[in-house]
Structure formats: structure tokens, C-alpha cells
Amino acid sequence: MITIIQITLKGIFRDRVFQGIMALAVLFLFIPSAASLSMRQVTELSITLSLSLISFILLLLAVFLGSTSLWKDMERRYTFSVLSLPVSRTSYLLGRFFGLALFLLMTSALLGTVAGLVIKVASGIYPPGRPIVWSYLLLAVIFATLKYILLVAAAMLLSTVSTSFFLPVFGTICTFLASGITQQVYEFVHSPASANTISPFLKTVATGVYYILPNLSGFDLKVNAIYSIPPSGYGLGLTLFYFISYTAMLLGGAALLFARREMK
């Protein structure tokens, strides 16, 4: 599996799509000046923009690399040569996943460092109302990365059943969009306000979808980082447990489906 991880990383670093997406990181340079336009809360806005930019870059990488990694190997017939080596399909799939996950971690470490410098500069010029707690900022970046690693697992699951590029890419985008609002939808359909407006059938469907789709709202620690609010240790533990178990389920499903897939 280690060899597959190495090959995956090499492939990403030599990929033009990756280089194009990473060029977006240049936008960090403009954050202090863009934040200064707000006149107040410049540091808070710098943190918001930095975390949002990290999130956006990681989203693009997760969607495009996660969705195309397996698909490209099958489309370009690389799987014929790789899967005939003494590598099990599960090792290959996990190697690809961990390669991408490691890459997202490396990217977020790099972007997080740049963001830290940008925020440091902004806070030096415009001291914030509340002191910056760097560990909260670090937690926000780490949990954002975990969120996109989970999204990569979802993209890989979709890749194992698809013969085209569309299902993995658009399926992952839809999963991401839906996963950000499932919590609100769930809370709404179970609220007293919805009792007369939502049919029991729709309520059951919404509840089912809530349990099937990933719930990514718990990974968002932006508010904690921006306003230096201590995050709940229990909540973090629960989110971490959710990340591990949900990712494991996605990868388990992907491994089962990929093992059955025929390389015609």
C-alpha cells in the first residue's frame, strides 16, 4: 500500500489541475488588504477569509482529485497493469485514498502556515477585540481537513460504481452541498413548527436521508477560531469518532464494490 501512496502523491504533484488549484493560494496575499476594507474587525475578517480560502481550495482538491483518481486509472487502462501486480484491490483503493488524504493534510499544513502568517500580519496592524487563540485556529484547519478527507472517501465510493466522470464529480459536489444542510433539515422536520406542514412520509424520508448522507456541520469550527470561543471537547471527540466511523464505512463499501468490479 505504501508504494501506491507514493505513486498517488507523485501523480498529484505532477498534475496540472493541482498546480492550477494551488495557484489560488496566491489570493492569501490579498487577504490583509481586502480585510482592511471592512474598517473594523479586520483581524476577524482576515481569519474568516483565510479559513474560507483554505476550505475552498481543499474542496476543489477533494472533489477533483477524489473523483478522478480511480476513474482516471480505469479510463486510461492503468488498472490493468497495476491490479495485475501483487497488490490486492483493497490495498490499491486504500493506497489511493491515503495518498489523497496525506496530500490534503500536507496542503492544509502549508495553507494553514501561510494563513497564520497573514493573520499575524493583520493582527499586528489592526489588534483584534479578542485575543487570537492559535490552537483554536489550528483545530479549525484540522477539522476542515478531516471534512474534506471524508468527502474524498465519498468521491471514491462513487468512483467504484461509475463508468463515467460525471457521477463521481457531480455526486461529490451534491453530497457536499447536501451534507452542510442535513442537520438543519433534520431539526426542522422534527420541530413542533413543522408538525402541520410536513407529512409523516416526508418526515421519514428526510430522517432516512439525514442518516445516510454525511453530516459535515460538526466539522465547522470557524466561529470558534474567529471569536476565540473554546470548542467543546466532547463535541470534538464525537466529531472525530463520526469522521473515523463514517469514513471507514464509506471505504468499506467502496472496497466491496471495487472488489466486484470487472476490468473489461
Binding site: 505513486i7 507523485k10 501523480g11 505532477r14 498534475d15 486510461r76 487502462r77 492503468y78 490493468f80 497493469s81 495485475s84 501486480l85 501483487p86
Partner: peptide, 18 residues
């Protein structure tokens, strides 16, 4: 079994970035 084999696929393709 694959440990015993050297396999050349028809019209082979290999990771072309390597």
C-alpha cells in the same frame, strides 16, 4: 498467484507521469 507472474496487458498503459 500474481507473485509468480509477469503480465503484459494488450495495448498497455502505465502511469504516464512517471
Amino acid at each position: 498467484s500474481k507473485r509468480h507472474v509477469g503480465y503484459l496487458p494488450e495495448n498497455p498503459a502505465f502511469y504516464d507521469y512517471l
